[in-house]
Design a protein around this nucleic acid. Structure first.
Lengths: 332, 332
DNA sequence: TTGTAAGCGTTATCAC
DNA sequence: GTGATAACGCTTACAA
């Protein structure tokens, strides 16, 4: 009834357990005859190695633990693909646990991964605080992806988000805009850097920044814009914290009878597939997600295999994807 | 250097290894004094149980393996949350592997999960063929979520997609449409059922079905509609295979100077957050994804704990989410 | 090239 | 209550 083990295979093939092990790990020092016999026996029995036993016997697990802030968020999916592709190349399995936008859940996920003896932790857009990350990285190599802040003890793969925001501002200014409002990400982890980038860029161009409190979804954008319409003047361009907020801006503006980009230009951030949708066609700041994923793997591998111990930080360059939500202002 | 084990903790606490085990599994038959001593020692050493050792020693792993067709697809995320919530309730860990829209990758993922000795397999929108599923379900309880076809040997949690398509048609007909085109999902797994539902509903209402070959993304919709415009007449309503195809229809129609819903109504399928975006506001067929996830867990648990052996199939009822992409035809 | 045997970190079954 | 001791399924010297 229970699953066949090496023992079973060994008996069937008329060899010792150790020999079966050698065959399974395709050692070169096994005679072709026995190898065939073992493989045949394994095949017939439907033998499947027990990873727990293997991991216990060996020092290592060849397994990496990844925690994704929110599996809903399409931004992270691309990072995952990058991570998986690279991990494949190096023969590592990647176990995914969903953080569910909740620090407590993430903490439990870290714990689960550690109990599984993963060789490294890859945290994608984590909600964890510094202490959590310090604690984790004291146990296994840890790399944080897509969270601009400094992560003590851990490696960091991110993009320069101040620069990303500056790209957005530059683009709008080049089009002729001077009255550009930023709807920020409120408590979101990347919000600070993006706002700062916006503000610096505006000032360095001699323009007055205007920052509205936003958030990370459509409703937040709506609230911000309604508030803007009531208490202040409508700008000719809006730079939103992310694509979803930009999407909210789009519909709120249109509901108010304003055309995008004719009356108001809108720029998003993240280049998620929302921005790509033809019907939205959002100009947005792009982060090289796939590459970020790959670098995450490379980085932890340097710790695992080459035992680097100094924390590393890689700041990739964001780029701007120009689409149809931006245009010169009505009258320059 | 290496991580502390029960042995280490036992020494430190001045007890036997077995006693530590009892404490860790909070057995009632341990004196309070020793319990405290053990816990303190574990705390100080940063002891963490080794799941591989535990899983090896015990018969079971309390772990479930989930494979997601494509982590990009927001439709699946919701299912994942349902699965996780229910699994939590029953004290199971859920390991996620990404199928990457590729049958071969999924096959490897199944293999990995089996080697990890998961107690059940949850396949969300799998690309695997019948044989793969038969093979898997011969080894562990397997439940297939969100794939309408019959899955021999496995349990199935799905919605009645024929019915979903019929809901879309009914809605359009009630609005007054008679000329309704369906853009299908081509080779996609759910395409057959949805097309069939559309066709039956049309015929039963005395209307002539027109089915265009589509696919599962925006470009497919564009191709279908351009083709339609060139070789045939434009209908007053389009029922698309899914939301993304519907989104493609939206932009292609508007690019052609047609207004939605004034000139053409559009209905999607899946109620992903694309449909929810205010700016898209797609009428679409909804599947109770969270509930599907929960039922998946319940179903496999019946096999694991109550050892049911007969395959089960649950067909949930889809519903229609009416938004702003549908309206009565121009002149009824 | 093959087999023997020890050990990986737990749990579980006994005695004490 | 507590502590030996034998599994669990595999890898890995070391012998043969």
């Amino acid at each position: 009834m229970s699953r066949p083990t090496m023992e079973t295979v060994a008996e069937r093939a008329g060899v010792s357990r150790a020999l079966v092990s050698l065959v399974m790990n395709n050692s070169s020092k096994v005679s072709e005859a026995k190898r065939q016999a073992v493989l045949r026996a394994a095949e017939q029995l439907g033998y499947r190695p027990n990873l727990h036993a293997r991991n216990l016997a060996q020092a290592r697990t060849k397994t990496l633990g990844m925690i994704i802030n929110d599996i809903h968020n399409p931004f992270f999916a691309e990072v995952v693909y990058g991570v998986e592709a690279a991990a494949d190349d190096y023969g590592f399995d990647v176990l995914i646990l969903n953080g569910g936008r909740d620090a407590e859940r993430e903490r439990r996920a870290v714990e689960t991964h550690l109990q599984f003896q993963v060789e490294a932790l890859i945290l994608v857009g984590p909600k964890l605080d510094d202490d959590d990350i310090i604690r984790a990285s004291a146990v296994v190599p840890t790399v944080v992806v897509a969270s601009g802040r400094d992560n003590p003890g851990a490696d960091t793969i991110t993009t320069d988000e101040e620069r990303g925001a500056a790209l957005a501002v530059q683009h709008l200014v080049e089009l002729g805009h001077t009255d550009i409002v930023h709807i920020d990400g409120a408590a979101n982890i990347s919000s600070r850097a993006r706002s700062r980038g916006y503000e610096k860029a505006m000032r360095s161009l001699g323009l007055e920044p205007r920052i509205l409190r936003g958030g990370d979804d459509e409703a937040d954008a709506e609230a911000a814009i309604v508030n803007l319409a009531e208490t202040d003047s409508m700008p000719t361009a809006i730079f939103a914290f992310n694509d979803l907020v930009a999407a909210g801006a789009l519909s709120t503006l249109e509901a108010a009878g304003l055309r995008v980009p004719d009356d108001v230009s809108v720029v998003g951030y993240d280049n998620t597939f929302i921005a790509e949708l033809n019907h939205m066609s959002l100009t947005t700041v792009n982060q090289p997600r796939h590459q970020m994923g790959q670098l995450a793997i490379r980085t932890v591998l340097e710790r695992i295999e080459d035992d680097r111990t100094e924390p590393t930080r890689i700041d990739l360059a964001p780029t701007l994807s120009v689409r149809r939500s931006t245009a010169p202002p009505r009258k320059a």
